[in-house]
Write a protein that binds this DNA or RNA. Structure first.
Lengths: 329, 329
DNA sequence: TTGTAAGCGTTATCAG
DNA sequence: CTGATAACGCTTACAA
C-alpha cells in the first residue's frame, strides 16, 4: 500500500480511502491511485482488513453436505445473487464425517470463517451444533436456508413449504382418480417427519385415510423396502408419494418388480436432475431451490435487521409432472 | 492471548509457543495454559496468524464445480485425509458462472484464500485461468486433482488413468463377444478428447475398427443423439461405450426406444451413484475418486518438494460391471 | 486532503 | 522460560 501511495504521490491514508469509499476521493487522484495499483499489481489484503474490528464486506456460506444436490443448488443460486450485488460469497464445507455420530461440525473451519469477520453468514442445510456456529461467528448476520424446520427459534430461515408441496402431490394424484395413496418416508430427520405429517394433513383435507405411511429414510434401498411392504399389504395403494427422489427410485423398482409399472403412480420430492432422467421420468415436487437461495441472499443483503419470524420465509413449490404418474384410475 | 497469559501466570510469548509447538513447553505450564484458555473460551485467531509472513498450517481446496459429483467425491476424500493428519482443509468454490464464457475464475475468492497464506493448495477439477491462481497463491504448494490433463506443465497432478479405464471397457466388451463397438463422446473438453483417443487406442490393440465415434459431450441429451446416430447407421454397433454416466443414460434411452435393450451393451464412466441406481444399472469405470483425493492430499502433506512429473500420478481405475452389459453376443 | 500514530491478534527474535 | 520489541497490511481517529 505504501508503494502505491508513493507511486501515485499521495498519502497511504488516501489509498486506503480510495478503496473503501472512492466517492470521497477527488477523481483525478483516485485515477492516479488506481493506475499505480494496476501497475504494481496491488490489491487490498482482505485478511489484514478482517483483523481490525470492523466487519468485512463479504458473506460466508456454510454448506452442511457438499454432496447433496439440493443444497448445492441453493448455494449456487445464493452465490450468483451475491455476485450480482457485488458482494463476495465464500463457500465452505462445514461438516466433517466423524467416527461417532456420522458427521460433526468442522469447528476449525467455522472458527477460521468467524475470524474473518464476515458481515453475513448463510447456513445451507442442517448443520450440527448450530449454537457453536452462532457463537463463533457472532459478528455476522445469520440466515439459514433449507435447514431443519424450527430447530432454533429466533433465527431467520428460508425454506420450501412442504405443506404446500405435499398438498400439490395429493391434489394431483386424487385428480387422477387415486384414493388409496401411500407415503414412503418419515424417517431420517425433521424434514422427513415434516413431509410425512404434511402428507397426512393433505389426505385428511381430501377426506381420505392417511394410514398407509411406510417408514423410510432418504435412500433408494429404504424406499424400495418400504414400497414393497405397502404393495404386498392386504389393501395395496394405487399411488405412492415418496419423501424424496432417491427413495422414489426405490419405489419405482419395487413397482416394476411386481409388474405394476404404469399402474401404480409414483411421485418424488425435490425435483433433482435424477427425476428428469429418461429412464426415471419421475413426477416430483420442485421446491425452487434457486428461489430459496436467492431469497436467502437477499435477506443478507437487505439493510437493517434480519427479520427472525418464527416460521421464516416459506417458498412455494410447484409440481413437475412426468411419466411416473400419468395413469388415470 | 494476554488474558490467558495472565490467568495462567505465564508470559504472552509462552502462550503463543504452547499452541505452535506444545512439546517445547513444560507440561505443567502447558496444562495451566490450556486450562486458562478453556475457561476463557480462547482459541488462537487464525486470521491474525496468517497476517505475518509465515505460511499457515492449513490447506486450501479450490473446487471447479460444486455440482459435479466426481469432484465432490475427490474433495471429501482429500478433506478426510487431511483431517486424519490433523490438518485443516478449507474448501471453497473457485468458479462463478459468467455471462460471457459460461464460467470464470472467482478472483476475489482466490485472492482471499491467497491472503490467508495456506501452506498448500489443492485444485480439484479444471479451473479456468490457472496462471492467475498460481500467481495469487504463490505461498502454497500446489497439487491438481482430476484436472485437465497436461494443461500446465510443471504442476503436480493426480488423476485417473483413462487409458487403462477405456482398455478395461473394451476388454470387457470384447470378452462378451462384441466386435462392433461404438464410442459416444469426444466433445466438451480435454477429458473427453483423452477418453476418445484412449478408446480408439484400445480398439486398435484388439485389432478392431475404431471408426464408430459419435460426437457427444457429457450430457444425457447429447449421449442420446449420438447413440441414435450410431444405432441408425448402416452398420450399427452391438455395444456402446460412453464418455461418462450421464451420456450413457442418454445412450440407454436411445437403445430402449429401438427395442434393443438387453441386446446392445452400454457402458458409462465415473461410476457415479447414478450408475448404481436400480432402473439404470449401468456398467461403469470406477476411477476411484477417493484414492485420487487421498493421494493428492498425501502429496500436499509429504515433506519436501512436490514432485512435478509431467504426467503426474495416475490412479488405476477398475470396472464396475452391472446389468447394462451382460449380453453375450 | 495529509501525515502520524495507535491498534487488530498473532509470530519472531533476542538478550536476559 | 520471560519480557520487550518489531513486524504482518490494513483501518481509523485526529490534528494540521
Amino acid at each position: 500500500m505504501r508503494d502505491v501511495a508513493d507511486r501515485a504521490d499521495v498519502s497511504k491514508s488516501l489509498v486506503s480511502l480510495a478503496y473503501r469509499s472512492p466517492a470521497s476521493v477527488s477523481p483525478h487522484r483516485l485515477e492516479r491511485i488506481l493506475a499505480a495499483a494496476a501497475e504494481l499489481g496491488y490489491r487490498p489484503n482482505r485478511v489484514a482488513r478482517s483483523l481490525n474490528g470492523a466487519r468485512e464486506d463479504f458473506v460466508g456460506i456454510l454448506v452442511a453436505d457438499t454432496r447433496n444436490p439440493v443444497l448445492t443448488d441453493v448455494v449456487e443460486s445464493a452465490r450468483a445473487t451475491l455476485a450480482d450485488a457485488g458482494r463476495l460469497g465464500l463457500v465452505t464445507s462445514a461438516v466433517l464425517p466423524s467416527p461417532s455420530s456420522g458427521s460433526a461440525l468442522d469447528v476449525e473451519v467455522v472458527a477460521m470463517l468467524g475470524d474473518l469477520q464476515p458481515s453475513g453468514l448463510l447456513v445451507v442445510g442442517s448443520v450440527p451444533d448450530m449454537d457453536r456456529v452462532v457463537e463463533m461467528t457472532a459478528s455476522a448476520r445469520l440466515v439459514i436456508a433449507s435447514g431443519r424446520p424450527g430447530s432454533r427459534g429466533g433465527l431467520a430461515t428460508v425454506r420450501g413449504d412442504d405443506e404446500v408441496g405435499m398438498r400439490l402431490v395429493v391434489d394431483h394424484l386424487t385428480a387422477l382418480g387415486h384414493r388409496r395413496i401411500g407415503h414412503v418416508g418419515g424417517e431420517g430427520g425433521p424434514v422427513a417427519a415434516g413431509r410425512a405429517s404434511a402428507f397426512a394433513g393433505a389426505m385428511r383435507e381430501h377426506g381420505l385415510d392417511a394410514g398407509a405411511i411406510a417408514p423410510s429414510d432418504f435412500t433408494e434401498r429404504a424406499g424400495h423396502r418400504a414400497a414393497s411392504a405397502l404393495l404386498d399389504s392386504a389393501d395395496p395403494p394405487t399411488a405412492i408419494a415418496a419423501v424424496n427422489d432417491l427413495a422414489a427410485i426405490g419405489v419405482l423398482a419395487a413397482v416394476a418388480e411386481r409388474g405394476l409399472s404404469g399402474t401404480v403412480a409414483v411421485t418424488g420430492y425435490d425435483n433433482t436432475y435424477l427425476a428428469a432422467l429418461g429412464p426415471i421420468d419421475l413426477t416430483s415436487v420442485d421446491p425452487h431451490n434457486d428461489v430459496i437461495g436467492r431469497r436467502a441472499a437477499e435477506l443478507l443483503l437487505a439493510p437493517g435487521h434480519v427479520p427472525a419470524s418464527d416460521d421464516g420465509v416459506l417458498v412455494a413449490p410447484s409440481l413437475a409432472v412426468r411419466g411416473s404418474s400419468t395413469t388415470v384410475v
